[in-house]
Structure formats: structure tokens, C-alpha cells
Amino acid sequence: MELKLALKVTDKDNVATIFSEGISDGTTVEIRDKKGGSEIETVIGDVPYGHKIAVRDIKKGELIIKYGEEIGMATADIKKGEYVHVHNLDSIRGRGDWSEEDTEAIRSKAAKEEA
């Protein structure tokens, strides 16, 4: 069977990016990291080329991490292997509906929960 590949950039990341076509619910993918390690994961949802899946369970309100940095916040509970995109991830920057303090509060709450 053709290898379905996903890439995780750093160890801190809780998502990996799939670079394969035809990924549907239940497909298994090989998640590789930059050190040559790999892990097999079963995908939840239909995931287009270049889109992301969670590599561990992520709770609603937790930060999503890629490149070892925050890329937004989970707006729902996300299961390991589940498709992660704008339906369950929201930006915490450039938000006209929040003040700077709101963004900081979200960030420190998420950091506390992680600790």
C-alpha cells in the first residue's frame, strides 16, 4: 500500500501536516518528525492535502502548537488523529472582538492548564 505521509515540525507540536492525497476517515498515516522518528496514526475525518491532524488529544481552549509556537486556540475538544482546521481552531491575534487583555487571558489560562 502507498505510504501516506504527515510531517511534524518540532517535538512541542500537537498537530502534524498531511502531504498526501485521498486521506479519508479511518486512513492510517505515518507521522514523521525531523529527527527521523515516526508514528502510525489513524485519521478522524476527511483531510485534504496540506491540512493538519492532532497528534494528541487537545481540550477546548488549549493552544494549538506548530513550528513549536502557538498558531491559535482549540474551539472544541479535538481527539488524537482528528482533522484540525478553521472549524475547530481560531486565531487569537488581530481580533476586533477582543481586547489585548482578552488575548493575554486566553494565553495564560491555556498555559496554566498545560502546566
Binding site: 501536516t17 485534504p48 492535502y49 496540506g50 491540512h51 493538519k52 494549538i64 506548530k66 513550528y67 509556537e69 502557538e70 498558531i71 491559535g72 484540525v84 482546521h85 478553521v86 481552531l89 481560531d90 486565531s91 487569537i92 491575534r93 488581530g94 481580533r95 476586533g96 472582538d97
Partner: peptide, 29 residues
Amino acid sequence: KSIGCDMRRGQPTPGNIAGGLSSIEEKSL
């Protein structure tokens, strides 16, 4: 923000989102 809304759906662009970029932070990094 001064327009009274926010950047989402302006950045990342619809094309970025279709390409898998979920937020301005992810695009920036």
C-alpha cells in the same frame, strides 16, 4: 481592527485556508 471587525477571513485568505493554513499565526510562522 480599526475597521470594527477583525482580520479573520481577510488573513489568511480563502486560498490560504483551502491550502490548509488555519490562522494568521500559522501563516506568519
